[in-house]
Amino acid sequence: MNSGDLLLTDNPDWDSGTAELGHMLKPGQLDLSHKVVLYLDGITVSFDGFRALNKLSLTIDAGELRCIIGPNGAGKTTMMDVITGKTRPDEGKAFFGQTLDLTRLSEPEIAHLGIGRKFQKPTIFENHTVFENLELAMKTDKRVWRSLLALLDSAAGDRIAETLQTIRLTAHADRLAGLLSHGQKQWLEIGMLLMQEPRLLLLDEPVAGMTDEETERTGELFLTLAGKHSLVVVEHDMAFVKQLGGKVTVLHEGSVLAEGALEDVQADARVIEVYLGR
């Protein structure tokens, strides 16, 4: 499962759409008929004349694990803002699958369609217990009336217990999330993402503040997730990027500078110039 160019045919989890023509889609359903889960084309975002993104074009294949690197201010976070609906691009197209126009949807709608996001700074509900954090994130009907009368059934309880084990916080289930260590908070946020059962995970510096061991384990987790989910990981830690092993995209001044395997990218003269200066 190391390769970013994972073939969909291996994967029974992709239910909607095949490569054939003439498939049927329910509205609002993810269409992966062209094996592309995310498609950004010519995205431009400017703040007061400063171009955070400059005609950024990027495609993520279904089931791919993609690493994004780039110096500060390259537009990584803004790109995630555009994908998750927080920032509207001035121009350009952003599609989730073949049909879902992300530039027209709100954050909750996008989250509901199956894009999960982990922030650079871990954002969890500090005044809720770890258990409750996962409970709230769980994929379910998230409308007001439902949540008023919602009760956990045993299947949901099992799901949470499973995730707790995955993120190794079972022993902390009843602690307030605010009392966790930084690394544990990162894991909890990842766990919340898992509970959402997203098709695409956006992870902004997921291993910042983790110990080497924790980092390694995170890497392993991501590798098991790839294939079933598509992952976009923004990271500065090159060792971690190397561990993940997928395709790497280098952003610079709001657009793609280089793309390819990590070794190729690291050998690219322009990339070296950007990172090291002249």
């Binding site: 927080k86 989250a111 509901h112 509900f125 500090e126």
Partner: peptide
């Protein structure tokens, strides 16, 4: 406590 997190896990 964290409105944006709530939005990004799919609640409006």
């Amino acid at each position: 406590d964290a409105e944006s997190r709530v939005m990004f896990i799919g609640y409006n």
